[in-house]
Design a protein around this nucleic acid. Structure first.
Lengths: 336, 336
DNA sequence: TTCTTTCATGTTAGCGCTAACATTAGTCGA
DNA sequence: TCGACTAATGTTAGCGCTAACATGAAAGAA
């Protein structure tokens, strides 16, 4: 034996080296190599050193695919989000990764693009990789998807909402109450003509219901609801379609900022405090950006990363409380 | 004692059903079931129907872990990004997923958090899952990481930059030239005191070099460089640390908008066109938000999703051009 | 008819690893 | 002194699936 690099059968020559090749080189059985990788304390120091040297010599990288099949543990978690680009769900993915990766779990990421059929497909695709848990934003859109998850017999965490009949665990907040809180605030501010802009996904719709119900309960006319296409920063033009409105709840901050941009063009934005705004605007999400624009954006603050970290925890512990309400906070700044 | 396994037609009783259980129920051999799953055309229609019924009855979900071990194909791609939250890399992940998921590939996501040691660990973790390719933002920070990838013998795509000696394939743009373009523009506008704000990651640094070199070549004093912590929207306070500066290039739009927010507080922001701005600001990334604020943000536009889709393509095709420059575009609006 | 081809299905032998159970020395208390 | 234990390592038998080859029946081709 000579140098550490590029030996026959080593380096970038042929196929990746296997456990038993390392074992042969170190003069031990393969199970010993396996132990060095997974439970080094069980191996005598000298043997361990020999094996570690052999692994280095060969550039051995354990094959977790084989390990997973043999041990029935994949050390992976499936994550399903509607979309990751330009969305607050990225915070949730970040949060759960930060918790899971140091523990040796890998994140398998899939996107549904708010499409029920694709969601079902991605769910099946995820399950076929035998993850040890699934974390998803919201709940399955179809009964099929729901059954798939129920039958999977692994922890399932639904996030960003508090479904009445969760499959297993939940980490989210009450979207209905968020809508109520915004309406309450706007009513207290003396606003009369409310409107809601946002998508028609389940969570947005729940916000709308809370918003509408509270407005009606306060004796106001039923608010208008403008359903925007995702990625429709056409929220810029939304104002034109909402004549007479003096307060708007946008289902997310991006829409809120887009709407404010439309207001600015119409000369309906002041640099002063909320009371000076002809049209109050409240967002949801508390993007950092909201504090940087003028007027600063009032919003429902939600901790996307905390949702992710909590979901990760629920994934790891089977016992304990399985329904965690992380709440939200109405953060009042200058826009409304 | 007796059969502890899933009763025919029963719900989720025991362990997940296997290929051979489906085969038994359909009265065929397991390879036939395997064919129904993977190459249905090779199976006679009646047999296929019988097998499909059995799969439905048992709620069979193929085990891709076992399949991957047997076929030496995992149908997965490892993706390494510095961070996914609140970043334009999410666009890239979205782009590559959109291309890869319909083809049956899963995305295994890992984050380095701009930490070289963590990057190496995540690279090893990814490789141990035997992905069929790796797509990463930037290049490995260490020689170890680089060697790991070189020895992996799978397509490696480095993105968001155009490294001189790529490991394999590249999909990105020239960060140096982006800095040059911004400096050129500011000089042409008659700006004299330039400054650069941003992080000190490799790509940001390359932008800085281009910016600095071009400014010097134009006879200006060497620009100031302010290195900000990530997530430091302290860019708001950056202006105080840059007295006398009349033009700023921010390494990303978020910093640019934060900086503008600081300018606003200092009364140095006008609603008029670039020529009216006491301090010009140019960002990079072209976040949608940049068009919504006032003044609208001038920026270097980069197509993060196109980078992702291109990287996915490079992953699938081994032949052809392996170095794709997706370029950038200086988009001039009102901020500078 | 007899040979060849095609189609549909089956048999066999692993993929690279680990669980579960040996096995072999060495240690130790009474 | 001896069984009882511990520490270190090994043996065996798969995990659930697929590649590669084998088989048998039906349908032409000659």
């Amino acid at each position: 034996m000579s140098s550490e690099l590029t030996e026959p059968g080593t380096g970038p020559t042929g196929a990746a080296p296997t456990l038993s090749e390392v074992a042969k080189r170190a003069g031990v059985s393969s199970i010993t190599v396996s132990r060095v990788v997974r439970m080094p304390d069980l191996v005598a120091p000298e043997t361990r050193a020999r094996v570690e040297q052999a692994m280095r010599d060969l550039g051995y990288i354990p094959n977790l695919v084989a390990g997973a099949l043999a041990s029935a543990r994949t050390n992976s978690v499936g994550v399903l989000v509607p979309t990751i680009a330009n969305s607050i769900f990225a915070d949730t993915v970040q949060g759960l990764s930060d918790k899971l990766e140091p523990l040796g779990f890998s994140v398998i990421l899939a996107q549904s693009r708010y499409d029920a059929a694709r969601e079902d497909r991605m769910l099946a695709a995820l399950l076929s990789r035998r993850p040890e848990a699934i974390i998803m934003v919201g709940s399955p859109a179809t009964e099929d998807g729901s059954r798939l998850l129920r039958n999977a017999r692994i922890p399932i965490v639904e996030t960003w909402d508090l479904p009445a009949n969760p499959i297993d665990a939940v980490a989210g907040f009450d979207n209905y109450k968020a809508g109520v809180a915004v309406a309450k605030h706007l009513v207290a501010q003396g606003r009369k003509q409310l409107a809601f802009i946002g998508g028609d996904d389940p969570r947005g719709t729940r916000r709308w219901f809370g918003f509408r119900d509270e407005a009606s309960a306060s004796g106001l006319a039923e608010p208008r609801r403008l359903i925007l296409d995702r990625k429709d920063s056409g929220s810029v033009a939304a104002h034109a379609r909402l004549p007479g409105v003096d307060a708007v709840f946008a289902a997310n901050d991006a829409h809120a900022i887009g709407f404010m941009s439309g207001l600015r063009k119409a000369g309906l934005l002041r640099d002063g405090p909320a009371s000076a705004q002809p049209v109050a605007v409240i967002g949801l999400g508390d993007l950092e950006m909201g504090q940087l624009i003028s007027p600063t954006l009032s919003t429902i603050s939600v901790h996307g990363d905390a949702i992710g970290r909590t979901a990760a925890t629920l994934t790891l512990e089977r016992g304990g409380e399985r329904r965690i309400d992380l709440g939200f906070e109405l953060v009042l700044r200058d826009s409304g």
